[in-house]
Write a protein that binds this DNA or RNA. Structure first.
Lengths: 193, 193
DNA sequence: CATCATATATGACGAGCATCATATTTCTGG
DNA sequence: CCAGAAATATGATGCTCGTCATATATGATG
């Protein structure tokens, strides 16, 4: 009996992982249930044994995306030195590598613009994800003794998200990386990093 | 004969206007040809007398959106005083009014994240639109004698776009306006406005 | 008022969508 | 290795999509 349950849990995890990846790349409504199940190595009919509806899947997929994002943020910020942690977070978040990895990492640049069109469960989880990221930044700014840490956190997050979204809009790599470099330098200079 | 042509041109303009508005609100793939034609007061079949394909419509709709955006930018920046023009542009772009008017004005906050998924013609026009906005900002920064005007233009545009996108993600008005206010203040302080 | 080009409407095509009822495979416990 | 439960597959529902061929309605011209 437990073997079945474990197998089912693994299938669910695989579906969620594929959904989280593909939706970052193709939008929350950019893939259908059938195509998604095929990506997970299953057929379309079994989907409703795992999720009550597609909307429910989107909500859980959003959670998975932000789990990746939180891991990334903590990896930089929870290292010993808060100053160096902030610097390396900004450098990585706005890196060429992150730009190319649309289907991994932070969902904010690709999906924030379409949050108002998401099903309500997914939207609520997205709001929570944004606020978690913002709160992490605020703690880091307090740790380095920055002035107005709350405002700075909001403002800095906005620029990071906007810069990556704009960079990815350009097909030309050099053009894209110019946008990332501008924000990397401006943000770090501004913060005295 | 010219009466026919004018009528057709008016229909095309109405279709484009509806498309530009609705696509800012519901995404570039958020409305179908049939629903769009109904919004314009027509039926779905006549669409292909105006545009060779839906992709072509999206491309022209993107142009229309950026025409609105450019008008908005010029309205503030081409007033006499460059300092005051920049200040009023930033205050309006990040205003509660602009936040509510998703279907009017600048398409960047709602659509930038999905540019990589747009049909190629639309994507090219979007790239041009971004660059036009960025160039206008750079000219304004030069006019007020700011240091590194090119970097500042890119960085400032990124923060404006990201802040509005993040603000619109929140259903709660107060929460949303906090994000806008933070970026308004930070940007103006930074620029000495 | 009649004619004729032009603009728009009707209706249909195949494909993909979310969802569900039912059949089949797979694995576990005895 | 067999019985039964649990996980997945098959197939069908009604809907919407982009596209197009064809029919009708509109309005300018003689």
């Amino acid at each position: 009996m437990s073997g079945h349950i474990q197998r089912k849990a693994q299938s669910r995890a695989r579906i969620l992982e594929e959904a989280a990846g593909t939706m970052r790349e193709h939008g929350h409504d950019g893939i259908g249930v059938a195509a998604l199940m095929k990506q997970a190595g299953l057929t379309h009919g079994g989907f409703y044994a795992h999720f009550p509806s597609r909307d429910d899947l989107v909500a859980h997929a959003v959670d998975r995306m932000f789990a990746d994002c939180t891991a990334l943020v903590s990896h930089h910020l929870d290292a010993g030195d808060p100053r160096g942690g902030l610097r390396s977070l900004i450098d990585y978040y706005l890196s060429d590598e992150a730009r190319r990895g649309i289907s991994e990492g932070c969902p904010l640049p690709s999906l924030t613009g379409s949050v108002p069109r998401m099903p309500s469960g997914a939207r609520r989880r997205f709001e929570a994800g944004i606020d978690g990221f913002r709160a992490s930044l605020e703690r880091a700014f307090k740790a380095i003794g920055a002035a107005e840490p709350a405002l700075m956190a909001s403002s800095t997050l906005s620029e990071m998200v906007g810069a990556m979204a704009l960079a990815r809009a350009f097909e030309d790599d050099d053009r894209a990386n110019l946008i990332l470099e501008a924000s990397r330098e401006q943000i770090k200079t501004r913060l005295g990093l």
